[in-house]
Amino acid sequence: MPPEGDPAEPTPATTPRRRRTIAVVVGAVVVVAAVVLALVLTGRGDSSPSPDATTSTAQPSGGASGDATGGDASDEPTSSTPPAAGPDTPESPPVGLDGSPTVVDGVTVRVKSLTAVDGEAVLPGEVAGPAVRAELEMVNSSGAAVDLSTVVVNLAYGSGRTPANTFSTGTSSFPASVEAGATATGVYVFEVPADDRDDLRLTVDYAVDVPVVVFEGAAS
């Protein structure tokens, strides 16, 4: 029997059990570490974008057939509206107020009336005073509707051909089109000094590639 107070030395039977316990614990730790590592690697692999996702983000916003703005070629306007008249558009020889010149094939224009009136100021910049009211008619003798959306009517007065301002009140421009066999009417009220009403130049601009129709005369 060992002396009192000295630790008892392990017996041969207890030593193998301790070694087996340590081996089991170490093996369990290794297994847990392997499982954790496998989960981490699996998680990283799942975070990578799939080929489908990459393909979808590369598509333009308008789809495969659209343009860069997302539109589609089939959505482009197919309007036959003529180009608007401009300052370089040639002019036809002037005609009298009783004339009925041709604008385009099958379409003529005439001044139904050109009378002196008093202009009414409504919008900012307008000044009430002497004015001229021009009523025009566009006659379509062709077999199809004619676009009038670009028609511009102007008036100048005096020897210096001063451009006249247009009053909003009383003015009603030509409609967007005139049907075959029909007549369209446009009314325009211009600011013109009373002393210049006998020297007027009324122009009708149909489109940039069509000569401007010119009427000359005096208001009644």
Rank of each mutant, 00 (worst) to 15 (best):
R110N: 10
V35W: 09
L97D: 02
G66D: 05
R110I: 01
A128S: 15
G106H: 05
D205L: 00
P93M: 01
T14M: 14
L148P: 04
V109I: 02
V153A: 06
G43S: 09
S79M: 04
T15S: 08
F190P: 14
G27K: 03
E120F: 05
S50W: 01
A38D: 13
D198C: 09
A121N: 07
E216S: 04
A134G: 07
F174N: 02
S48V: 13
E76C: 09
T21G: 07
A84N: 05
P7W: 14
G5R: 10
E137A: 14
V24Y: 12
G129N: 03
P77Y: 11
A34Y: 08
A131D: 13
T162V: 06
S61N: 15
P16I: 15
P60N: 15
T185W: 00
V25H: 08
E126P: 04
P211D: 04
P93G: 06
G119I: 09
G125F: 10
T14E: 15
R133S: 15
L97R: 03
G181N: 01
A164V: 03
R110Q: 12
A156H: 05
N165M: 03
P87M: 11
S159F: 07
V25C: 11
A28I: 12
T42C: 11
D199G: 10
A144M: 03
E91Y: 10
A121Y: 06
G66W: 06
T115K: 11
S50C: 02
T183R: 02
T42D: 15
G70N: 06
